[in-house]
Design a protein around this nucleic acid. Structure first.
Lengths: 333, 333
DNA sequence: TTGTATGCGTTATCAA
DNA sequence: TTGATAACGCATACAA
């Protein structure tokens, strides 16, 4: 059932049918009703390929995410999809993993599908900050369509970034720990991403502010796995009285370590996680965690995306939302 | 840059370019190399709309899921996307929620995008079993393209189902509890879906097998929220010595209840969860949980999907994989 | 082995 | 207010 069939049934030309479908006002009410009735009866829907061929758009945005199984990412995708739906945009989802070559090829794949815009979720797309060429593929994509980063920062034309203020959040959290008399704060992270670096910077800043010298041995790269973190901490003897983790998973690992060592939490060991995931209320004691407000980030991003696609020229190239410390039972504040 | 440009640059016709792109063997090695070089140099990719227009396919499958933020679903999507990628298929993702009208309209939306196949993840798409008309929209979609259910069962032509043996799994888990002397087993679920009904049936079966009469007051519908489950259990006085939950979240809620009541786990209260999610190793004590093998389910489903799209006629309309009980510290077996 | 011509289902431009 | 027709970019049957 195509536009020709409808035209024939309605006794009009395809041009008229097209006008009716696209809500043009240059068609008499009488014909409109007749055509509409036929369309309804036959259950006709315009062929999106043919539409796309002519219009060069399919009302679709590409979403690239390193790992959709990660709770932070899947939540973000959920928010984004939900919002886009409202505006009538569909989502093509692709999972790139964390490797450069894969990221690049996945973006190529998405671009080849003629998406209207691209959303990159996760700070992994910001690169590690060492080599600017690392993010060239994003600038290159932005030559074709607007690119939106959620929790990421990349400089470039037609690139719109949104970040949560991770540095500030960690600065404040660690400062609070220090005020409570903690001396040796173990910083745990599983990545060298932009946001991981920001969080680390916030931690170091707080330490210096308090007149302490950041001890490199207390900044640790660990796997993002509860049991592995526990084992790792158990297998060594570094002394620390607080843990600041860049993800709830690692924080729970620290909690498991504390339980194994019979340390009291928060008396002997304070722990702060990140992302305020379900894990934070699942563990015992429940975990103080930093909420990075990803919902807000996602909503704002979609709003901006719609504005940019609508031709707006005054969309900010970068936005930041501040995080929120959710105090629970693993800290004494 | 389209096929005409490439043809011009290579000094051949568009037909030849098309042949090269599609790997036809009816083209001389010399021309192939020349054309390939130009294509490479210009970074040409065929326009998917134009391809789709003629071929009525875009090598894309639609994935419908009630809630991508749910860990079980996001894991499943991750597996499915990963496999489809290998076969060169892209994914259009849509989140329908749990309401009938939304499910139907989301499927319509996906169909209108001319996907090659549809994957429905989650037992919510099986309906509640009361009214067969509830799943008519799925049969209706299957008139156009093959439909694959992951963890769901719907009868119909061109519909392929896969389920984990939830009934059997719960039967065995509850039987194990009964063998250890548990008398009153509280069954917690948050839904009336097909799989929830299966799990309940397995529980009742085990009870009867042990000569016990299922007590309706011990089959409870609760919210899928840790704290709400805890509060609910605290607010009443039903006596039970074991909990069988249809999801890890509710099981952790029961664990929190036990902690609040100073019950020893598993001595005073045994708890079994479902899905074997990260939550299971996050809580304290760590949760015995039933792994429903969703990875296997997803892989098999994609294999079958590829087979069906490849024209195979002997793909089973329904497959089942057995679950696995992962014993941890909330049970005494 | 290569080229020509046609169809795919729209939208949009220009006439009527 | 309508209709005829030209793009849009590709695959492919048919010709050469």
């Amino acid at each position: 059932m195509n536009i020709y069939d409808i035209a024939k049934l309605a006794g009009v030309s395809i041009a008229t049918v097209s006008r009716v479908v696209n809500g043009s006002d240059k068609v008499s009410e009488r014909t409109r009703q007749r055509v509409l009735a036929i369309i309804e009866r036959e259950g006709y829907t315009p062929n999106v390929f043919a539409q796309g061929l002519g219009l060069h758009t399919m009302h679709t945005v590409g979403i690239l995410v390193p790992d959709i199984a990660d709770p932070y990412m899947s939540c973000a995708v959920s928010y984004v999809e939900d919002q886009l739906q409202i505006y009538g945009y569909g989502c093509i989802l692709s999972c790139s993993g964390f490797e450069q070559a894969q990221k690049e090829s996945h973006i190529q794949m998405l671009l080849s599908k003629h998406i209207d815009a691209l959303i990159l979720i996760g700070s992994t797309y910001s690169g590690h900050g060492k080599d600017p060429a690392e993010t060239d593929y994003i600038r290159s994509a932005a030559l074709q369509i607007p690119v939106f980063l959620i929790n990421g920062a990349v400089e470039g034309n037609n690139i719109y970034c949104s970040v949560s203020c991770d540095r500030q959040a960690v600065y404040e959290a660690v400062s609070a720990l220090l005020r409570k008399g903690r001396k040796r704060i173990l910083f745990l992270t599983d990545s060298r991403s932009y946001s991981a670096a920001e969080k680390r910077a916030g931690c170091e800043e707080a330490l210096r502010q308090a007149g302490l010298d950041p001890d490199p041995s207390l900044f640790r790269m660990v796997p993002d796995d509860i049991h592995k973190v526990r084992e790792l901490l158990l297998s060594e003897n570094s002394a620390f009285d607080a843990v600041m983790a860049t993800d709830d998973v690692m924080a729970v690992g620290a909690l498991k370590y504390a339980a194994a060592r019979n340390l009291r939490v928060p008396e002997d060991l304070a722990v702060i996680g990140y992302n305020n995931s379900t894990l934070a209320v699942c563990c015992e004691p429940e975990l103080t965690s930093i909420d990075n407000r990803s919902r807000r980030l996602c909503q704002d991003t979609v709003d901006h995306l719609i504005a940019v696609l609508g031709g707006s020229r005054d969309v900010p190239g970068s936005i930041a939302v501040s995080c929120q410390l959710i105090a629970r039972d693993t800290t004494d504040f």
